[in-house]
Design a binder for these strands. Structure first.
Lengths: 127, 127
DNA sequence: TCCTTAGTTCAATGATTGTTGAACAAATGA
DNA sequence: TCATTTGTTCAACAATCATTGAACTAAGGA
């Protein structure tokens, strides 16, 4: 039903380069971006990052990314859907995000990576 | 006569994205890069950055940039010539440096530039 | 209704930052 | 030789960072 209060996000024109760079200058957060870049349509939930750090830490890092304007976070039931702010970032800093993603891929800074390809599916509450 | 011991720099292949991003995630260091981008041929000396911060601070920030592999620093007499490691960065992270420089320019994050513009809202101790 | 899932809040903690000032060193120039 | 220029080192400090564990809330499913 999505009747949840939205979380605060900076407007596109309030996103600043130093803040974005600071947000990305961290292993864990860069890994989150790497994950997200493979699910640009759907996004991911916080729970899908718990291989990178503890639940509490993920909350912290995702907030940092949200406050910097790098990701969008929207409540969905008990979950938070996290997506890259691709358009805003491309508009503000042309070429930047792609160069980051490409480099992150090449260097596989990522958490795991070619992990038999979890098909981006959410919920997995198997029997 | 340049018989000075060189300062330690990482090899091109030792430059990592998180480190570079951390190095650039700072107002002062981003401003240094902005300055340097306008003198890519010659480079600049530390003394030319003292409008951005104190001498001691500049030493600190330039070291950060050097250790991250963003700039090259070579002693010349009593001075240090600082240059962007353009080729190494372009090779490692294609498009990255240019996107940073372009964005830094557009947003004039820079130190001074078109003077008449007080840096946003810093102190206003008028007479 | 009760239980589970998904995530947040909070206080505590140790580590890392960025700044300062005083003292220093090394090359240059008079 | 002596002073100046240019930059470094060091200890100290406040501020911010990233992590932890315990307690918590809110939504959904049985």
């Amino acid at each position: 039903m999505n009747t949840q209060p939205p979380l605060p996000h900076p407007d596109a024109d309030q996103i600043t380069l130093p803040t974005v760079l600071t947000a990305l200058g961290d292993q864990t957060r860069l890994a989150i971006i790497g994950h997200l870049s493979r699910c640009e349509g759907t996004g991911m939930t916080c729970g899908q990052f718990t291989d990178l750090a503890s639940k509490t830490s993920i909350t912290y890092h995702v907030s940092k990314l949200r406050e910097a304007g790098v990701v969008n976070v929207t409540p969905e039931g008990t979950r938070r859907r996290v997506t890259l702010r691709r358009d805003d970032l491309d508009h503000r800093f042309p070429g930047f995000l792609d160069s980051i993603i490409t480099s992150t891929r090449d260097l596989h800074i990522d958490g795991f990576e070619d992990e038999p390809n979890e098909p981006a599916e959410l919920s997995r509450r198997d029997p």
